[in-house]
Nucleic acid binder design. Sequence first.
DNA 1: GCTCGGATTGGCT
DNA 2: GCCAATCCGAGCG
Length: 204
Amino acid sequence: MAPRKLRSSNASAPRLGKPLKRAFFGRSVHEVAPDLIGATMLVGGVGGTIVEVEAYHHTDPAAHSYRGPTQRNRVMFGPPGFAYVYRSYGIHWCVNFVCEEEGSASAVLIRALAPTHGIGAMRRRRHLVDVHALCSGPGKLTEALGITIDHNALPLDRPPIALHARTADVEVATGIRIGITKAVELPWRYGVKGSKFLSKPFPK
DNA sequence: GCTCGGATTGGCT
DNA sequence: GCCAATCCGAGCG
């Protein structure tokens, strides 16, 4: 039989679900966060399946918006459906999706992806071969997808950003958030328990 | 205007 | 497990 033609970089990519519109984000951050698990995030056609996120609510002392608007966090106080990008530890970029309604200043931090699209591009940007470590942390995935402050305030439903709903049911685990020192006990981390692409495993 | 520390990562002990 | 890298917002004076 004739050999099947191999697709070079997207061979493991699942069929994409329907595009997520801006209205998807106009809900409670605790509804949006679990609904993002299993969705596909692409920037310039490069990305993968979201496997780990964290919710940050404006009433939450760990949220950047907790003390009101600043130059850095002003996008969080705008309408839902936009990207909030900030610099972490002076070195890395982290990306959030603004949720709820204008002024509620709540967002979901994207923490890890299972790479599916443009894995070669991600490996080049990360100078890394192991696919499991390409996007296994909030600073890693922004480097892999080429996200910088230039992406701050961009709409989530327009190029270069594209989000697609998940196409299969996923069991979403919850746990305490990673790396924070305030409100450490809130179980606002959501993800795929047992995934090899997490920043850290969910406890048993 | 100065100091402190963070929604992190990777390298070294 | 420990720690440096490196920027900027927050808190205080």
